[in-house]
Amino acid sequence: MNIEKTTSIIFAGLLLVCGYASADVAVIVHPDNPLTSISVDDLRNLYLGKVRTYPNGDQAEIIDLGDGTPLRTQFYAAVLNKTSAQLNAYRAQRLFSGKGLPPNTVATDSEAVAWVAHNPQGLAYVDKSKVNGNVKILMTIQ
């Protein structure tokens, strides 16, 4: 009985720690973008600054969310398998040795949706619930 009690306390504790409900993340582009899907590898290479074009060769402009936002943490854990700090260190190495600039950022995913809706080359990741008819979903990450 004691064990049971202890176990339930631990579970309650775990629930508190892991209680943050993760959202469905949608990777979105402009409706005019001819792509209908994108691979995790292509996404990773875009966000690591290793490629600057879509798989079909078109120029890509990606946008990032601000450091510390839960959606950003979730996206980088899923696509890059990296923490925010690891990614920031990687980007600092490139930025300060002249090997590449980090992507531009917007504060919220609503702004990201608006930005992609106005930018035919744009790509962003947002909470799926924020997606509207002005953008197209290429991928959903649970």
Binding site: I63, N104, V106, A107, E111, A112, A114, H118, N119
Partner: peptide, 8 residues
């Protein structure tokens, strides 16, 4: 191009 300026 954008109506507002959402970029940080």
């Amino acid at each position: 191009i954008a109506m507002s300026c959402p970029v940080t």
